[in-house]
Design a protein around this nucleic acid. Structure first.
Lengths: 205, 205
DNA sequence: GATTTCTCACCTAGGTGGGAACAT
DNA sequence: ATGTTCCCACCTAGGTGAGAAATC
């Protein structure tokens, strides 16, 4: 058996090139942001340190805490001709902003799920993975022939469903032991300096 | 034979509900618009008079002249809290703007092409119609077995290509006689009052 | 008889996990 | 032994013209 806890494994890996995802609606007035839910579903993650698509660069098997920055931008006539990005780059201390952290959005980056319940959760709730379902939840004949899933699938382990994961995306991960969630719609900022980043050990169950 | 000219066929049909397509980048500074080509490829057309998707409503077999309006929007601090759209609706004469017309963008709306050369032009140049091509222009074996096109296709008429249409989307339509082009990326405004709109007669060749 | 609508096979574009191959 | 990369079949979503059916 393994101990189910995190352990420090030495100094952290070098930090990735820090990148910011600017919401596509930016800049916009406060009324715009309050009008509806603000979604970051255009944000993309990568583990390619040389990425040039503007994606957020992560290290696999490391833990991240998304942070949200709300930046006040003066009216167009009141600021210099240069774009706001360069203005904040040259004098960041003069740009007023507030930062918000939602601890429930913290996640561990992975290249492969470490817990097959997460796999089942994604298959059940993501329309693009419909091909891996045993049964379409929307129209599933009670005892009839199941919708044929991908032919070459040959999963050995039993499903052993976790009650806490019955509602997709709504469960508290710790309810089923250490889980490694794949996050699609998060904003990235390393939450601490290089010497305090969680390092590469993780717990099996 | 038919006469190859337009004739007046009585009073015009009632005008469609007038709609404006606002470019998705709006509002933006002049420097933004000058940075690259300004594309209206998100604009969609419909002949459904009851459309509620915000598409531009056209009458089939009628002629249209797109118009481009450049509207000056004062800096955010200098204008009232209400959005610019409502401001121009309540007092249009106070909104400074300029209108540009490019006669070469005029077109006739249709539900089906009236000239099969246009069909061939679209098939040759639109990636979504690749299934109807006899041969992929990018990799076509010189004399080998042609790429199989859609099976149930049974076009009777010979291709009889028009030299002026050799370069997709670049030809002057009148070079091959009266053509009825399908326009995807245009801005709509009826170019005259209801009594001077072209009506439903058109010329065969 | 001419025009419009509808369904279809055929595409593009891209988001899924599976699993083999590869790297460390 | 473990973690990563790559290709694949399988999906969603939606843009094509062909041709039958419907409409007028």
């Amino acid at each position: 058996m393994f101990s189910s806890s995190w352990v420090v494994a030495g100094k952290a890996d070098p930090v990735s090139p820090p990148r910011i995802h600017v919401h596509p609606d930016s800049p916009a007035a406060g009324a715009h942001w309050m009008r509806q839910l603000v979604s970051f579903d255009k944000l993309k993650l990568t583990n390619n340190q040389l990425d040039d698509n503007g994606h957020i660069i992560l290290n696999s098997m490391h833990r991240y805490q998304p942070r949200l920055h709300v930046v006040y931008l003066p009216a167009e006539g009141a600021r210099p001709a240069s774009a706001s990005a360069s203005a904040s780059a040259t004098s960041p201390s003069t740009v007023p902003y507030r930062t918000f952290v939602f601890p429930e959005t913290g996640f561990t980056a992975v290249t492969a799920y470490q817990n097959h319940r997460i796999t089942q959760l994604k298959i059940a709730s993501n329309p693009f993975a419909k091909g891996f379902r045993d049964c379409d939840p929307d129209d599933c004949p009670p005892e009839q022939s199941q919708q044929r899933a991908v032919a070459r699938r040959r999963e050995a382990a039993a499903p052993e469903p976790c009650p806490a994961l019955a509602q997709p995306y709504a469960a508290e991960p710790s309810a089923c032991g250490p889980l490694y969630a794949h996050a699609h719609t998060v904003r990235y900022q390393p939450h601490a300096g290089p010497n305090t980043t969680y390092s590469a050990y993780y717990a099996h169950r």
